[in-house]
Computed example of a mutant assay.
Amino acid sequence: MEFVLDTADIDEVKELDGLLTIAGVTTNPTIITKSGKQSEEVFAQLADYLKPEQKLFAQTISTDYDGMLAEARHICGLRPKNTYVKIPVTRTGLRVIKAAKAEGLGVLATAIYSADEAFLAALNGADYLAPYVNRMCNYCDGVGQVVGLIRMLAAQGMDTKVMAASFKNVEQVRELIAAGIQAVTVQPPVVHAMIDHPGTEIAVAEFTENWKNAYGRTTLLA
């Protein structure tokens, strides 16, 4: 399974990449605008830092066919390999997905709110599908829809990977990992919640205190 960070903050990427096995980074227009940086700066920082085997995902802004396709080519040209354009699954977006895949570009279909939208994007050749799990919960059982999508793709023998996005809490991530999802992209606050269970810190403090009381030191080696 691929564990991906959903952020434009290069410092967060560096910190978490040092702690965890990170498969890549996703961004979107909102994340970039909230960073206070120009998109060119964000892309340059990420492209410079990520290892060749780590993936970079960036989204189109245009909503017309020609503009989206031009942006798709630009995004996929940011790095020699492992760079994917994120294309929303609008009617125009579905056309662009077909065209981009015909040119051999890497594609992640995004802004997905139903298993049906996702499956159609997979038929158009998308490499990844990004259902917005928590946002989907406003309309239906978001986690359930994504589990159903995983089953749909498996039943049809399709290689497209589901990369669930838009998580509100750790429980949503856990349920989909347990369901066999191929990838998740998670924002740093939720990642930190997965790492920093308070019980672990309590246990470590107890071990250290007991050792210090018995041996007068806080290290294993004398």
Rank of each mutant, 00 (worst) to 15 (best):
G93F: 00
T7A: 03
V190T: 03
F3W: 09
Q59K: 02
V147W: 01
H197M: 11
I150C: 07
V147A: 05
Y132N: 00
A102N: 11
H197S: 09
R95Y: 03
C140K: 04
E206W: 09
C137P: 01
I10D: 05
Q54M: 02
G67Y: 00
D127Y: 12
I195M: 02
D64S: 08
V4W: 08
N169T: 03
D141L: 04
Y113N: 14
T185M: 03
A109D: 06
V13N: 06
G18A: 01
E175F: 15
L78G: 10
G180W: 04
T7C: 13
F207N: 06
F207V: 15
A179M: 06
G142Y: 05
N28L: 11
P52N: 14
D64Y: 05
A47Y: 05
C140E: 11
A154Q: 13
D64V: 08
K212I: 14
G36M: 08
A155W: 07
A118Y: 00
V133H: 00
G125W: 09
V186M: 00
E175N: 11
T83N: 09
D116P: 03
C137Q: 14
A121Y: 02
P29A: 11
N28Y: 00
K86P: 03
M194C: 10
T185Q: 12
T33F: 04
A72F: 06
D48F: 09
L221M: 14
A99L: 11
A183W: 07
P189H: 13
A100F: 03
T26K: 05
D127M: 12
I75K: 00
K34Y: 12
V143S: 02
G24P: 09
K98M: 08
K14H: 10
A179R: 12
A193V: 04
I177E: 04
V143F: 04
V186Y: 01
F167T: 03
Q45E: 15
P29S: 13
R135K: 10
H192N: 07
M68N: 11
E41A: 14
I181R: 10
D127I: 06
I177H: 11
T200A: 05
G104W: 12
V162N: 05
F119D: 08
E53H: 11
I195E: 04
A23N: 00
M136G: 13
L46Q: 01
R73S: 13
G93Q: 04
L129P: 02
Q59G: 10
D159R: 05
I32M: 01
S35A: 11
G93D: 08
L69P: 02
